[in-house]
């Protein structure tokens, strides 16, 4: 065996590190989108590899819908602190108060409402680049997106007019008000992410592992029953997202395969207790990762339409 040869994970790693360093060198005010999910966990390790022993030269940004899994929030805050990074959180609720966004009548999911919150945060902090953990294997509109994905002054992606991306030469030039989204994990698959988490011994939020949870069945998905509403005089944030009398509900041994918020994340029945179990489960899976995402099921072009409007 040749010692001057990288295996597939080492290749993906060096590619992602190169991309992260290009961001640090080419942009004035970049940020890392960090949700606490498995992909952004890999991004943070890659950032450590790209920038240590210096500090990671960019803050972390997270957009909250207000319907997050509490386990995820706890993990996100702790991880950011461990890394000595500045964590900026902007929420849909704040955006309502500031008039940046208005609630969609009759719609309990706030997935779409993350768009104005994200664009508002970009404006507030004058971020010229946001690094995300999206991968091309997740979804077919993403399969067409560049590592350096240009957004115009309105935050829009124009899939028919993308900059050619040749070799490892990324064109990072922007005019004022424009923005770049950069995806260092573009070439990673779900399996690669879990193999990397194993190799690097990275901690992930415990909801990725099998646990017992009250779930209910809606639109072909097992959704988590939201936490009980405290009688605090405010409206129930989960109104419409609680099981109805007709909907089947039961306690399940389950876990999440991908995480949005509690309203958009389908639970999968799974006995996977550790990373090796997850890797085996992903290898044998017969549905895609995002098959459990209610937000993608809106239409065949749900992701493309959201990206055009400025989504992650």
């Amino acid at each position: 065996m040749s010692s001057y040869h990288l295996d597939h994970l080492a290749y993906l790693e060096t590619e992602a590190i190169h991309v992260l360093r290009e961001v640090a060198a080419e942009f004035e005010r970049p940020a890392v989108l960090f949700s606490g999910g498995k992909d952004s966990i890999c991004i943070l390790r890659l950032a450590e590899k790209a920038f240590r022993p210096s500090e990671i030269p960019m803050p972390f940004l997270n957009v909250e819908t207000g319907h997050e899994f509490p386990e995820l929030i706890e993990f996100r805050d702790r991880r950011a602190e461990e890394l000595g990074a500045k964590l900026i959180v902007r929420t849909v609720d704040e955006a309502f108060e500031k008039g940046l966004a208005t609630p969609t009548p009759g719609q309990v999911s706030r997935n779409q409402l993350q768009i104005p919150v994200l664009l508002g945060a970009i404006e507030e902090f004058q971020f010229d680049c946001c690094i995300g953990g999206a991968r091309r294997d997740e979804e077919k509109a993403r399969a067409k997106e560049r590592f350096f994905s240009f957004r115009d002054a309105f935050g829009q992606w124009d899939p028919k007019n993308q900059r050619p991306e040749i070799w490892n030469l990324y064109n990072a030039r922007l005019n004022p008000g424009e923005n770049m989204r950069v995806f260092p994990l573009s070439n990673w698959t779900e399996t690669d992410v879990w193999e990397y988490i194993k190799k690097e011994e990275l901690e992930v939020p415990n909801i990725y592992f099998s646990h017992e949870r009250e779930c209910f069945h809606r639109a072909g998905q097992w959704l988590p029953v939201p936490p009980a509403h405290e009688a605090n005089g405010k409206a129930d944030p989960y109104e419409g997202a609680r099981p109805t009398e007709q909907e089947e509900h039961r306690r399940m041994i389950c876990r999440v395969r991908t995480i949005a918020d509690m309203i958009s994340t389908g639970m999968i029945e799974s006995p996977a207790e550790n990373i090796d179990d997850i890797i085996s489960e992903v290898a044998a899976a017969r549905v895609t990762e995002r098959g459990t995402r209610a937000d993608d099921k809106a239409s065949e072009a749900a992701m493309e339409d959201r990206k055009k409007a400025g989504y992650f």
């Binding site: 399969a143 067409k144 899939p159 028919k160 070439n187 698959t189």
Partner: peptide, 29 residues
């Protein structure tokens, strides 16, 4: 249609842009 991911591509039955796909076999990725 597996690789033609954009709305216009499905409508026109053509491939507009580079699409990246990932295949793994026991021998290679």
């Amino acid at each position: 249609n597996l690789t033609d991911g954009l709305r216009a591509e499905r409508e026109q039955g053509i491939t507009i842009d580079v699409a990246y796909r990932y295949v793994a076999t026991p021998k290679r990725k």
